[in-house]
């Protein structure tokens, strides 16, 4: 990804309305303050990778974006709609935001095809034939169309995660969230999932991805955000973040995960 193309796209992104805006978001678990004054703006078609040590709040932040967790203070605006307790707003947002989980969370009692068509049929009220066609096209895109009638338990981890990506894509979301998508995979299957995610990124999807895969971040991310202990410590383009980290905390983190690489 050349610097000019990156600059082009970032400029494009700034012009249009931001996809996700987090404005001084605070979250407490009981009395534990887990997100402190988090402010982040993700532009349309921007790819953001969030990294940080475990317990830094990165998963919590991303789960706040589609209201799997609730924030107590601050504002979150997704695709122009503010995220409040209002269930109408919530329904709108969940339709436009797709999520891929660390533990895949496929529905084991449904076939792959049924997993993918479930939400389009019941939430977007699509007719079954149309939904199945849509699902097959995405299954082809993630390169496992032949598994459509199998059950999740019959697939490998890498295949299951790709199905999970297809399932989220079937809702035609504007934004995709990834919560450590490759952390539960055996090493030989990580590549196939990352390739899928790279292809998705190159097609122009807005993505926020929590991951430890620094190679992926270097290749695809427009911006890397480093979080520690509930706050955003540093953020910037991947090359600068990895080669010349500014803060001590980021330096320490990089030394721990890039050890030996």
């Amino acid at each position: 990804m050349s610097q000019t193309m990156l600059a082009d796209r970032t400029a494009q992104a700034v012009e249009t309305e931001a996809a996700i805006t987090l404005d001084h978001v605070n979250k407490w678990y009981g009395s534990m303050h887990v997100l402190r004054d988090v402010s982040l703006t993700v532009a349309q078609k921007e790819r953001v990778v969030v990294c940080g040590p475990s317990g830094s709040g990165k998963s919590t932040m991303i789960r706040c974006i589609n209201r799997l967790e609730t924030h107590q203070e601050g504002r979150i605006i997704v695709d122009g709609t503010e995220l409040t307790d209002d269930t109408r707003a919530l329904d709108t947002i969940r339709r436009e935001v797709g999520m891929v989980f660390q533990s895949f969370n496929l529905f084991p009692h449904l076939t792959i095809l049924q997993n993918c068509t479930l939400a389009p049929i019941w939430v977007r009220k699509m007719p079954r034939a149309e939904a199945e066609e849509l699902a097959m096209s995405y299954l082809r895109r993630v390169k496992i169309p032949e598994q459509a009638n199998k059950f999740p338990g019959q697939l490998s981890g890498g295949q299951q995660q790709r199905v999970a990506i297809a399932r989220a894509l079937c809702m035609k979301p504007k934004i995709m969230l990834f919560d450590e998508p490759t952390s539960a995979l055996d090493p030989e299957m990580i590549k196939e999932v990352l390739d899928t995610m790279i292809e998705l990124a190159e097609s122009g999807m807005t993505m926020v991805c929590v991951t430890h895969e620094m190679g992926f971040a270097r290749k695809v991310a427009d911006r890397v955000v480093f979080m520690d202990r509930g706050e955003i410590v540093e953020s910037g383009p991947p090359t600068r973040m990895f080669e010349s980290p500014q803060t001590d905390r980021l330096k320490l983190f990089l030394s721990q995960i890039l050890r030996g690489h």
Binding site: N26, W28, S31, M32, H33, L252, F253
Partner: peptide
């Protein structure tokens, strides 16, 4: 991580 106590354990605000 850096050896000091985790500030999250001490609630700063309600």
């Amino acid at each position: 991580m850096s050896g000091t106590a985790d500030p999250r354990l001490f609630a700063a605000r309600r």
